[in-house]
Structures are given as structure tokens and as C-alpha cells.
Write a protein that binds this DNA or RNA. Structure first.
Lengths: 211, 211
DNA sequence: GTGAGTGGTTTTGTATACAAGAGCGGCGCA
DNA sequence: TGCGCCGCTCTTGTATACAAAACCACTCAC
């Protein structure tokens, strides 16, 4: 863990996601270095990464500002995630070991536990959901896919979506995860692809109708 | 153009693609800085970029080495390109202006001129092909898509594929580009998506049978 | 009053110096 | 002779200093 650089990345991204740095806010290297408590060098690396993940955009003159997303951007992000994660699911269906599938099962059990109580534990749901999807991506054994999906700004969307979920939506996620596990167990890549595509498209729908 | 950093990127990538730096070769920052003639700082940025594009991989200890690709990697790259560029074509079909379509037409005319002579001009073909695809990607008006496709290591594949093309394959590319232009003119995004998918899958096939 | 030119100021880009960690070889011991 | 430990060197990570370019505002001319 390269402390300084990763710390700068995490902190600056936090500023953006929390809204402390609203769209259009300039991201000046020295100011951020002061905030984070490191020098400009690791801040520069963090900013390059945030730029490549489109959290920030560069003005004609080379200045970085926080990027703004509109509804079309959100739809595009979901469309890309649907394509790439469906592909990951299809690959994973051919590659996942029984042990990995067992891990997925455990993960989804945790997810269901998170929403079983009187008041759903959203943070725990999100963590389990994230772990579930990450397991599939790493199970797809494609470095390229992993890189691309990591770069896809997803967390803010996932968070905003989940906070808008009602209980039936959350339950539905768990059910769809179960279907994925069935498809994996059957080693049926087409099935896995279809379920994953439906899963993510439904999330977009939930996001749209809730906002 | 930020000279030093981009220059380092281009030169180092050149070393990798030309084979001067074969898979497994360590990429040491200071040595590369000497070769390129800049300091370690821009070299570091170039290496980060090459790493994110998977031209290089990091060893457990943090050293960078040139990445090795096998047949499965090549297939995966084509599969991802097929998905993403089809999506780009579909989006472009809904967005391209008549002027942009005219540009595509001119571009494909150039491509056809490159292969019309007695001896096909491969370099010119590749440049025109690249320009054609880039126009579509920028026409899709999705920064995310553009970033991802830029990051997808494609040039080496394209080059290796085209050198294996026989004349009928080259001609076929031109024809498929014409079909894309027709689909764009008709503003038919499904048609455009299908043609692009076929176009890239055929390229994979040509690559496989020729190697 | 408006526009362009020009200076200062701010901000990024590059180079270098320093610190910390990893790999490697030699040496000693069993 | 083989294995493990220790110290050295080499490499990367971070900080800082310097150069160049961009933005801004002010002024001056028309």
C-alpha cells in the first residue's frame, strides 16, 4: 500500500463524493497537498487517476475541475456496467471454482441478513453487494475487465441508488444474486450473462423512478 | 501537447510494441529517463499510464515489467472492443451530424484509395481505419467510452491483424465501413451496432486463421 | 466606452535531492 | 555442501526547487 498516493486519492475522491467539492470546483494541486498533508507529487498522481476515472475534467488550459454528471451520464454509466459486468458474469460462469461459488453464497447470505431486520442495514447491504460483484469480476480472470470496471465510477451511483431502494427492491437484489449463483453452479454462461444484465438494468430503472 | 510526458509515453510504448522490450523485461525508471532524455518525473507518469493500459504489469515488489499476452488475452481484447465499439456505433447513429457522416465517407474513400493500387499501402490503410473508428467514438459523445477504448490496447493487435490481411480482407473492411455509413445515414442504431460487432468479430477471425 | 495589449500572479510541468524498502549476493554456520 | 542470515546496492516513493505557461486585471489607446 503506497500510503501517500493512495491516501491522497481516497481523500480527494471523498471530497468530490461528499459534495464538499461541487462540480466545477477547481482542483489545485498545492491546495490539495496542504489539505491531505502530503506533497504535490502524490497529489498529482491521485489527480491523474481521478481524471482518468472522469471524476474530474481538464479545462483547455490544463486546469482540473470537478466533473458534473447529468442524467444522460448516469444512464451511460449503467449501460456500460451492464455490458461489462454481464461479460464478466459469462466468463466467471466458465471459470468459478466450487469454493468461489461457496464464497458467493456466503456473501449473499450476509446481504440477506443485512435486509432481514426491522430496519435494513444499508451500509452492510452495500458492502455485501460490492463484495459479491467484486468476487464475480475477479472470477472472470480478466485484468482488462477488472481495470475498466474499477475505473467506472460506480460507487456514488450505487450508493445513491441503494438509498432510494425500498425493501422490495433490496429483496429483489438478493433474489437475483441467487439466480446468478444458480447459473454459476450450472456453468451456464448465457444464463449468467442474462441475469446480470437484467440485474443492472433493473437498478437503473429503480434509480430513475426513485429520482 | 505536454512534451516530456507524452514523449516518454510514446517512446516507451514504442519500445514495447517494436519488441525491443520483450515480455518480462523490467522497466526501470531511471534507465528509461536516460533513453528518452527526460527526468524520472514524466517517465513515472508514462509508466503509470502504460500500466493502466496493461502494457506493463507490476511485480509483488512494485517493479514494472513488460506484460505478456497469450491467445486468450487477444480474444478477450477483441471481445471487449466488439462490445464497446458496437455500443459507440449505436450511440453515434443517434448523434452523428450530416457533416460528421460526410467526414466518415471521406475517410473511407481514403481507405479505399490506400488499397486500390497494385500494392496496398498498409500504413495508409491503418491510418484511415484508425481515423474512421476514432470519428465514430468521438461521435458517440461519451467520454467514458472514449477513455475505455483509448485504454484498450488495440494498436498492436490492429497492426498485427492488418499485416496478415490479404487483399480481400482489406476490401471487406471497406465494404463494412460503407455499411456502417449507411446505417448512420439511416440513423438506425441497431443496424450500426450489428455491423460494427460483425466487423470486429471478423477481424478476430482473420487474426486467428492467419496466425 | 470598449477593446486589445501587457504586466504581475497563480498554477502546472519538470528536474533533482533525499528516504525507505526490496532484492541479491556473500558470508557463516550446521 | 547446503541453508539461512545479514549487509549492501539498486529501485521506487516522496519532497522540494525551479521553469514555463496560463489566467487575470489593469491600463492605455482609439
Amino acid at each position: 500500500m503506497t500510503t501517500a498516493s493512495d491516501k491522497a486519492y481516497a481523500e480527494i475522491r471523498g471530497l468530490i463524493l461528499s459534495g464538499d467539492a461541487s462540480p466545477g470546483t477547481p482542483l489545485r494541486e498545492e491546495a490539495l497537498a496542504d489539505i491531505v498533508g502530503v506533497s504535490r507529487t502524490p497529489v498529482r498522481e491521485a489527480l491523474k487517476r481521478l481524471e482518468s476515472e472522469l471524476y474530474a475534467v481538464r479545462t483547455p488550459g490544463g486546469r482540473l475541475v470537478v466533473a458534473a454528471w447529468d442524467g444522460d451520464d448516469v444512464a451511460e454509466i449503467f449501460a456500460l456496467r451492464a455490458m461489462l459486468e454481464s461479460h464478466a458474469a459469462a466468463r466467471a460462469a466458465r471459470r468459478l471454482s466450487p469454493a468461489a461459488i461457496a464464497e458467493l453464497r456466503a456473501c449473499n447470505a450476509d446481504l440477506q441478513a443485512a435486509i432481514a431486520g426491522h430496519e435494513p442495514d444499508i451500509a452492510r447491504f452495500l458492502a455485501a453487494n460490492r463484495a459479491f460483484h467484486d468476487l464475480i469480476i475477479s472470477g472472470s480472470a480478466s485484468g482488462r475487465l477488472a481495470t475498466m470496471l474499477a475505473g467506472l465510477v460506480e460507487q456514488p451511483i450505487v450508493r445513491r441508488t441503494a438509498t432510494r431502494y425500498d425493501r422490495s427492491d433490496l429483496q429483489r437484489s438478493a433474489t437475483e444474486h441467487d439466480q446468478l449463483i444458480q447459473a454459476f453452479t450450472a456453468r451456464d454462461s448465457d444464463w449468467a450473462r442474462a441475469v446480470m444484465a437484467a440485474h443492472i438494468h433493473r437498478a437503473l430503472h429503480a434509480f430513475r423512478t426513485a429520482s
